[in-house]
Structures are given as C-alpha cells and as structure tokens.
C-alpha cells in the first residue's frame, strides 16, 4: 500500500513537470494554431538558466532564483517568437513546423556549445528530508522537495488559471483564440498579446525545467523526450485546452510511472504512445478538445 502511495507521488511530480510544459504547447496552439516544437527546448533552456544562476549567483535564494530564471526564459521565448515565428504567421503550415524544429535544434546546440554536453545535476536547493507526517500517517516515504515541486507546480497552474480567466491580458488571450481577426479592431495590439502568451508559456516551461533538474538531472537534449511527452499529454487532453493539458499530463505520468513500477520499464514508452493512439481513436480532438482556452 505504502509503495502505491509513493508511486502516486512520483507520478504527480512527473505529471507536474509535463503539465508545466504542456500548458505552453496548448496556449500557443490555442491562440495562433502554431505547434511550437521548440517548446521542449525552451523547457531545457529554463533548466540550464536555473543551473547557471545557481552556480554563478549562489547567494540567490531559491524563491528569487526561480522567478528570475522564469523571467529570463520568458524573454527568450518572446525573442524567438519575434525573430523566427512572427513573419511566418501567414506562411504555409509546413514552413512553420520546419522553423520550430529548427529553432529547437539551434537551442540544443547553443546550450551544448556554451555549457557542454554533459548531464548535470542542479544543486539541490529544496530540502530533501522526508516528510515525517506522510511517513507516520500513510507509511509513505516522500521527500520535501518532491512535495514542494508538486505543490508549487499546482500553485503556478492556479495562477495561470486566474490570469487567463480573470485578467485583462487573459481576456485578450481568450479573445485571440476565439476570433483573432477582430481583436485589432478593439484597439488591442495582437502582437503584444501573442508575445504575452509566449512569455507565460516559456516561464512555466522554465519552472518545469528547474523542477526537473531538482528531481532528476538536466542535459541539452532533455527537451526532446520530455517535450514530446508533454506534447502528447497536451494532445490527449485536447490541445488548446488549459484544463486538458493538465489532465493529460497527470494521466500520462500516472500511466508511465505505474507501468515502470508494476510491469516493465521497457514498456514505458510503448504504453504511453499506445495510450495516445487509443485515446485519439476514441476522442479525435482530445479529452477536453473543444474550442481552445475555453472558460469552464
């Protein structure tokens, strides 16, 4: 019993990281129908910015380092949109797909050349002691960093929900998703709203990268595997839907972790991708795949 609970916490931690990435895929797709295949590499970049800040500005406490890394990654995301994607907004879909893949390869090699190809551990900045309360009540061995990563991720998702549903920028983002062509006629600068979406998506991915580096390790190519998984999670949930991205992420992580724990680690990807195919046969547009960024 206790191991099941431990596995569920593992799944929640992995699902939280997937969700932080999947949200960016889903938001960008929701507003401009662009699948940003470089988004997994933004996640990687966020992790490395976190690593550089931790090693060079070691005195920065975690609660300052993390927002700073998110801000810097957000700037990178905005810059990529400005330089590489904006002028392709009316281009053929294939040109855009190729460009996003190219940006991803660029980011991977940029980090490989500047920081190095090695796998690295982000210095532990969160407490790693076990949560005694969980050990005493449920008999589950769960460390504080794992619990904090799950809780902080959920908090970020809650903030995102509030931003989208309760603020002006969020209203504008939903309006772009709803009827992009009418937004400029409201006197609202469409480019600003699209930039804000890239900023928010990249900042969330950076949080995911830092959490992932705390929980596991980082390397310049980690965005490929994790990015695809998060993309699958977003598609399963219904790409364009915020709630769907979160749901799909926890679902996928749950299936993966439980497969590894109780079946075989070799089957992990087979089952994850098989699940994608099965779910899409039943729900072609994903579990919550209705009009994007829809208010619930």
């Amino acid at each position: 019993m206790d191991t099941v609970i431990q596995q569920l916490f593992n799944a929640a931690q992995l699902g939280a990281v997937y969700a932080l990435i999947a949200l960016g895929y889903s938001m960008v797709y929701g507003i401009i129908r662009l699948i940003n295949f470089a988004h997994g590499d933004i996640f990687m970049l966020g992790g490395f910015i976190g690593l550089l800040l931790t090693t060079h500005l070691g005195w920065l406490p975690f609660y300052l380092m993390m927002p700073l890394a998110m801000l810097l990654t957000a700037l990178a995301g905005v810059a990529i949109e400005r330089v590489a994607y904006r002028r392709l907004r009316h281009a053929q879909r294939m040109s855009v797909v190729i460009t996003t893949l190219g940006v991803g390869i660029f980011l991977e090699n940029l980090v490989r050349l500047t920081v190095g190809p090695e796998t690295r551990q982000l210095p532990a900045r969160l407490p790693t002691a076990p949560v005694l309360w969980l050990q005493n009540t449920l008999g589950a061995f769960v460390t504080w960093d794992k619990l904090l990563i799950i809780l902080l991720s959920l908090a970020l998702m809650a903030i995102l929900w509030l931003v989208i549903n309760k603020t002006l920028v969020g209203t504008a983002m939903r309006a772009v998703a709803d009827n992009k062509d009418v937004v400029p006629l409201m006197g609202v600068n469409l480019n600003l709203i699209i930039a804000a979406t890239f900023a928010i998506g990249s900042a969330l991915a950076a949080a995911g990268g830092i959490f992932y580096g705390q929980a596991y390790s980082i390397d310049p190519y980690m965005g490929i595997d994790l990015g695809w998984k998060a993309f699958i999670a977003a598609v399963i949930g219904g790409i364009g839907s915020i709630e769907g991205a979160v749901l799909g992420s926890f679902l996928l992580a749950g299936v993966e972790v439980l497969t590894v724990a109780y079946l075989s680690s070799n089957l992990k990807n087979g089952i994850a991708f098989g699940l994608l195919i099965l779910l899409l046969l039943v729900w072609p547009s994903g579990i919550m795949g209705k009009p994007m960024l829809k208010k619930v």
Binding site: A74, T167, L168, V169, T171, A172, R174, A175, D178, N179, D181, V182, V183, M186, G187, V188, L192, A195, A196, A199, I200, P291, K294, K295
Partner: peptide, 30 residues
Amino acid sequence: RLFAHMTVLDNITMALHGRAGYSLWEAVLR
C-alpha cells in the same frame, strides 16, 4: 463577429481594453 465563446461582459471588456494604458510587463508583473 462577436467573441462567441466568451461572455457578453468579456466582449465589452475587450473593447475597453484597447484604451487601457499599461504595458506587457506591467500586465505580466501585475
């Protein structure tokens, strides 16, 4: 051409939005 999947109130808020004076970073940093 309304924002059909948004509330009536949100449709109006969007229209007033263009006149609101704030920048992207003001909005992100609230």
